[in-house]
């Protein structure tokens, strides 16, 4: 089980800010996004966008970063502070 966090517009796409999910066969962030996309096309497409950054366990990650049970995986759309 991993904890997924969705920020900004991605929380709207996911219908929640947080989701606990079994990882199944997914070994990388990319695998996880593909698996999500198979069940929820709109969410998958939103997460595929190049502008979306990924943070695993509070560290910047890439699509090929490895993930495992117990990880916190955050999906971040373009920021807008100030």
């Amino acid at each position: 089980m991993a904890r997924l966090l969705f920020f900004g517009k991605l929380a709207d796409a996911a219908g929640a800010r947080q989701r606990d999910l079994p990882l199944g066969d997914a070994q990388t962030v990319g695998d996880l996004v593909s698996a999500l996309g198979k069940q929820e096309a709109a969410l998958g497409a939103a997460l595929q966008e190049k502008s979306v950054r990924v943070i695993v366990n509070e560290k910047m990650a890439a699509r090929d970063s490895a993930i495992s049970d117990g990880d916190e995986i955050a999906f971040l759309p373009p920021v807008s502070g100030g």
């Binding site: 920020f7 971040l76 759309p77 920021v79 807008s80 502070g81 100030g82």
Partner: peptide
Amino acid sequence: MDYLKTEAMFWKK
């Protein structure tokens, strides 16, 4: 300020 607007992790609705 320029970096707070484009780099800091905030999302504004």
